[in-house]
Computed example of a mutant assay.
Amino acid sequence: MSKTTITPFTADDLVRHLPELGALLRACVHDGASVGFVMPCGIDESEAFWNGKVLSSLRAGGLVLLVARQGETIAGTVQLDYDTMPNQRHRAEVRKLLVHPAFRRQGIARALMTELERHAHGLQRSLLTLDTRTGDHAEPLYTGLGYRAAGVIPGYARGTHSHEYDATTIMYKAL
Rank of each mutant, 00 (worst) to 15 (best):
N51C: 12
G52S: 13
G52R: 14
G52V: 07
K53T: 10
V54N: 04
V54K: 06
L55V: 03
L55E: 05
L55C: 12
L55A: 14
S56L: 09
S56T: 14
S57W: 00
S57I: 00
L58M: 08
L58A: 10
R59V: 02
R59P: 01
R59K: 15
R59A: 13
G61H: 10
G61W: 09
G62N: 11
V64P: 00
V64H: 08
L65I: 02
L65Q: 10
L65C: 14
V67Y: 00
A68D: 03
R69C: 12
Q70H: 09
G71D: 11
G71F: 01
E72A: 15
T73M: 13
T73Y: 04
T73K: 13
T73V: 14
T73E: 15
I74P: 02
A75P: 04
A75V: 02
G76D: 06
G76Q: 04
G76L: 05
T77D: 00
V78Y: 02
L80Q: 08
D81K: 04
Y82K: 07
D83P: 00
D83L: 11
T84N: 12
T84Q: 14
T84A: 13
P86D: 12
P86K: 06
Q88F: 12
H90F: 10
A92Y: 05
A92W: 06
A92T: 02
E93G: 00
E93D: 15
L97S: 03
L97W: 03
L98P: 01
L98Q: 09
V99D: 11
H100V: 02
P101N: 12
R104M: 08
R105M: 11
R105I: 01
Q106R: 15
G107L: 09
I108E: 04
I108N: 09
A109K: 00
R110L: 08
A111R: 12
L112I: 04
L112T: 04
L112G: 10
L112E: 07
M113N: 05
M113G: 09
T114P: 00
T114M: 04
E115Y: 01
L116H: 05
R118G: 06
R118D: 04
R118W: 01
R118E: 08
A120Y: 08
H121G: 11
H121R: 15
H121T: 13
L123C: 06
Q124K: 10
S126R: 14
L127Q: 14
L127M: 14
L127W: 10
D131M: 08
D131N: 14
D131Q: 09
T132F: 05
T132W: 07
T132M: 03
R133W: 02
T134Y: 13
G135D: 11
G135R: 03
A138L: 13
A138F: 02
E139V: 07
E139R: 07
P140R: 09
Y142C: 01
Y142K: 07
G144S: 11
Y147I: 06
R148Q: 15
A149I: 09
A149F: 00
A149L: 05
A150T: 01
A150L: 13
G151H: 07
G151Q: 08
G151R: 09
I153C: 09
P154Y: 04
P154T: 13
G155N: 15
G155V: 03
Y156D: 14
Y156I: 03
Y156V: 02
A157K: 05
A157F: 00
R158V: 12
R158K: 15
G159I: 09
G159F: 06
G159H: 12
T160V: 14
S162P: 00
S162R: 07
H163F: 08
Y165H: 14
D166K: 05
D166L: 15
